[in-house]
Design a protein around this nucleic acid. Structure first.
Lengths: 223, 223
DNA sequence: GCCGTTATTTAGACTTGTCTAAACTATTTT
DNA sequence: AAAATAGTTTAGACAAGTCTAAATAACGGC
């Protein structure tokens, strides 16, 4: 009863990921995320609705029930703990962990995940800066906003990358940007919205508005 | 082409495990090991034979091809490395790791398994004393024999447990027996073939002939 | 060397998860 | 408000993997 198939878990995680702030997730978006077709998603939503994990209003998308959300949070927890393990202990690059964690997250063992959490010292954030739910599903609270919204002169701390696209992460590596760094916004180009940043030791560095939109920062760091 | 489904992998591993010394594995035994029915095994053997992993002689059982054996050895490698990780790093008991490793072994990432091997310092044996194939499929060579075959007075080293049954392992825990220990055979009861052993600090200890048959020991340890 | 037992295979069915194509609903455009 | 468009559902099909029941093959005993 309690255990879901891999495909069911994938759908639940996709809905969780798409369902920001009460919005329901649409078939097409779920299908795109899982590389399947909308019609397949319809079938699966019916099954998940029967199991009480999803509320499915035909033509109006799907949203998770409390039970479904609990399940999704545990999947996110597992995914992010494994990513942390892969980077911190096995020396993977942060751009290499996604697909492997995608497999590891489906391994089902309460004890395994609790031991892993302990072994990693109960991390609150994964290598991309994403929050890791605790064993009861609580997410650490923190307010972030996109770097793109900062004003010139702001000093901020890089908290997370909101899209774990491999090539974005590789770009950040190439520019020497990493989670936790303090950045100063030196200038904003009016022409394309790109930002001139200063950080670490070295000359200033330009990043596009697109990239800046994916970098999440915390409230100004105290100097 | 190269990637197998979980069920295909399970069958290949079962055949590998049953196929000692050139013997082929029989349907019924495979089915018992995988908790399925012989007829399901027949179907799967056909599929695996088509993929060139198994030689299937109807009514005469199945045996692995070179390709199949290579695959099986990689699965055994993954299984035993994960078991080692679970015991050495996450503090699992050696009687708790089997089912979890059974899931982890199906995660497919060359890099993951090589990094794990490195992280564990290239272990040659898993927590049960079973040899871990190296990345090219080589097994460390070692000759062992059952403790049951020892003569009274022998001093031997406990190398492995040939059956990873949970209750056997718990029994060994209870008696304080662990891989690597040096044992002295103090007496053998003619009535039931049980052995009286001395090891560590403590009084002698009796083990049944059945248990002694599952304990594999190395050539006499030098005193 | 025949007979009964046991194991294996075949045949047909079912479930899960997916697909395509066609029918349908909601939304946007004019 | 009707038509065009974009997304959703239904219907029917298929592959993988499993099952039961019936047919068939191998083997051990007498």
């Amino acid at each position: 009863m309690g255990t879901l198939t891999r495909s069911e878990e994938d759908h639940i995680k996709a809905i969780y990921g798409l369902q920001h702030a009460g919005t329901s997730a649409f078939n097409k978006d779920i299908a795109d995320r899982l590389n399947t077709k909308a019609s397949s998603v319809t079938d699966m939503l019916k099954r998940l609705a029967e199991k009480g994990l999803v509320k499915h209003a035909p033509y109006y998308g799907a949203s998770l029930t409390a039970k479904g959300r609990r399940h999704a949070l545990m999947l996110v927890r597992k995914h992010r703990l494994w990513e942390t393990f892969l980077v911190q202990r096995l020396g993977f690059g942060w751009d290499e962990v996604h697909t492997v964690a995608e497999q590891l997250e489906h391994v089902s063992s309460e004890k395994l995940i609790e031991r892993l959490d302990e072994y990693l010292d109960h991390p609150a954030y994964d290598p991309h800066g994403d929050p890791i739910p605790d064993r009861s599903g609580q997410l650490p609270q923190r307010t972030t906003r996109p770097l793109a919204d900062c004003a010139v002169g702001d000093r901020v701390r890089l908290a997370a990358v909101s899209d774990t696209n491999d090539s974005l992460l590789q770009l950040l590596d190439a520019k020497g940007l990493a989670i936790g760094m303090v950045l100063e916004v030196v200038a904003r180009e009016p022409f394309d919205g790109s930002l001139e940043l200063r950080y670490g030791k070295g000359p200033t560095c330009a990043i596009s508005a697109l990239v800046a939109g994916h970098l999440l920062i915390e409230q100004p760091a105290r100097p």
